[in-house]
Design a protein around this nucleic acid. Sequence first.
DNA 1: CAAATATACATAACTTTCTTATGTATAATC
DNA 2: GATTATACATAAGAAAGTTATGTATATTTG
Lengths: 119, 119
Amino acid sequence: MYICPMYSSELIKGTLKTIVLNLLKEQGKMYGYEITQRVKLLSNEKIQITEGALYPLLHALEKQGEVTTESEYIGKRVRKYYSLTEKGAISAKDKVSELADFMATIRFLLNLETTTANG
Amino acid sequence: MYICPMYSSELIKGTLKTIVLNLLKEQGKMYGYEITQRVKLLSNEKIQITEGALYPLLHALEKQGEVTTESEYIGKRVRKYYSLTEKGAISAKDKVSELADFMATIRFLLNLETTTANG
DNA sequence: CAAATATACATAACTTTCTTATGTATAATC
DNA sequence: GATTATACATAAGAAAGTTATGTATATTTG
């Protein structure tokens, strides 16, 4: 069995947008820091989204009308919550489908079809 | 069911090196053009490796000692065959393991665990 | 209570890695 | 003879990260 401390950044690159859109779809609304922590947790520390990658992505998604934002104050500190628009929800669905399809193709390409136990 | 004409390039980016190393591992030796055609065929046209991506990658792999080359003449035209070195074989194995692990993590992250039929 | 760590945002310089375009040349097909 | 396929190579530009830096509040710990 293979133990990986952290995936190479090239791998994460292509899936970041999909992951974020999908999380927003499932969670309803989230703020940036929360997204980084949840991905870290769910991936067992193997995917750590950097702020330099996440915030520009979220800003771009907002600009493209895929998410809307609302700021909330926790004490004096601001939190910016992101929610999917209808367009963003469609995008999330498409992205996830594409990624699922892609992974199936890759498994076939790499002959990983029967990868189940004891790798 | 989702029909995808061609995966977004961001997705392919992170997996190109892995795909190439794995093909070389399975096929013994291949030349560049052959790699592009095989990937195109095996992926049902959904992954088309561009020459501008492939050749620089192959040159880099050679420079790093992961592949060796031998040129063969087919008539007057040259073909450059690439084979894995021992180092390249290890790299291939590692890369494939990492990708398999990564895809499992992504499936979990995206709740695709039970994706089998009529997705 | 001071220091360190965690929370929470943002952006800029730089790097990597591809896309697109271009270039060269032979072989096969129509 | 012209077009398409085979077969290599590289350079300019774009995209999307990483790394570093900056600001500021909240919490934990010694």
